[in-house]
Design a protein around this nucleic acid. Structure first.
Lengths: 246, 246
DNA sequence: TATAAGTATTGACATTTGTCAATGTAAACC
DNA sequence: GGTTTACATTGACAAATGTCAATACTTATA
């Protein structure tokens, strides 16, 4: 069984049954990233426990508050790390692309998830037993370094996010999100955005109506074009400046 | 010399000269906390590099952007970890009490400070060479665990802060700050607050005028009394509820 | 004591932002 | 095709929040 007996998670049953199948870990996209330099023996420890699962867009991969029994590697799709705040309002911390391993700070504290991971588009993920993961991290100094490094990087991004959300007005925040989608998620000025308007709003801490209005303003100014979820950014410099000035 | 040659830090000269004096590390308040279980040999590595410095209230201990050459242990006073944001607006992440060691995420990334540390009250701090600190952390598994644990804890607090600041309105945010001062800083419902009104505002991401107004509202409601910097909280439950509801 | 400088407070006002309700649009389903 | 459902858009309005200027208060200093 994928989830331990006492887990308070509740994955749809059909996911758990249908999609658990062995794939060749050596060829896996996970291997390309965090585990690329890992000795085969150590990598085996990780692989032995892994479980593949598919999620449809909109489904929850793991939920804030649930017992942290596995870390997750996204192998396909797009996911969001988000926080469930006051009165059902969500705050998206960041998006997760394939090859990224998502752990969570609870791993070393209280073994609970402190944020939720949700599928923005259809996703394939690989669940890795947290005990196996910890074992390998503590066994392997280089990996431990790398993990620390990445966690530090995330913390720095979190500080930047905190300043963005508390000190910038809405146009700056939306410009920020567009630059993020362009520069870090789709790596192109033209993209079909997997995020709904509500999710864009959740990423910039405002109401969806406000997000829509600002996007329309940017469109009217000629900085972007919008057709449903088809985005194209024409004036990166203008958006960068709006984002920087706040 | 306290700071390496290529440091872009600029501490007032008189601090650097006057206050470097050996104290008995074994009795130091630092020792009581993070380093309490450290083998004597490892602790010696740390102690050999330490430099004591005093700072007056309002002075900067280290500055965002500067080269991270030392980690800092606060031995006396009260300090703030803050972020210098847009147009000189500061955001205080949290307060630091004596015995706490302040590193910063840059230690494992780019060797720069990603936030500033400032003295809220007069402070005594102990600078520890970052190389010595890293050496001991990587040598000592138990300490490494503890460091990871604390960093995780801070990250969790950061998530909570992010939600507080983006999803709560001003009364909720000020109530939050009062609960924080009561519960985690002064551990008493009655305290002489070392923070200025501006700093209370920086802690709750609002203008100082707004902070003042909300404090006055709480006073008018009878939840607190205020006389300059003398605070007394009468109705913890009311503040807790205001904080929770947002 | 007088003066100056910084901090705190208050009120008036403008701006930003959210809420609500109405309408439009698109995909899914019968 | 028609219906339903979810999502997107728009406008009107209310609420939250910041800005600015005037004034009080405190502390440091001449």
């Amino acid at each position: 069984m994928l989830i331990t007996e006492n887990s308070i998670n509740s994955y749809p049953k059909h996911h758990m049954a249908e999609h658990i199948h062995p794939i060749n870990c050596s060829d896996c996209i996970c291997k390309a990233d965090l585990f690329s330099d890992l000795p085969p023996d150590d990598f085996d420890i990780i692989c032995r426990t892994k479980q593949d699962v598919e999620f449809n867009a909109g489904e929850i991969i793991f939920k804030q508050g649930a017992v942290l029994t596995h870390v997750v590697c996204l192998t396909q799709g797009l996911a969001k790390i988000y926080f469930e705040g006051i009165e059902k309002k969500n705050l998206i911390l960041r998006l997760v692309k394939p090859s990224e391993l998502v752990g969570g700070p609870g791993m070393f504290v209280d073994r609970r998830h402190h944020y939720s991971l949700g599928a923005v588009a259809d996703c394939k993920v690989c669940f890795i037993d947290v005990a196996a993961y910890r074992e390998v991290v503590f066994k392997n100094k280089k990996l431990a370094h790398e993990v620390m490094n990445r966690e530090s990087q995330h913390r720095i991004e979190l500080y930047t996010k905190l300043v963005n959300l508390t000190q910038k007005q809405m146009p700056g925040r939306i410009a920020e999100v567009l630059m993020y989608l362009y520069g870090e998620v789709y790596n192109s000025t033209k993209f079909n955005c997997a995020l709904s308007r509500q999710e864009i709003a959740d990423l910039s801490a405002m109401s969806k109506e406000s997000a829509i209005r600002i996007l329309k303003d940017f469109k009217d100014e000629g900085y972007i074009t919008l057709d449903g979820n088809d985005f194209e950014i024409f004036n990166v410099e203008a958006l960068a400046q709006i984002s920087n000035l706040g």
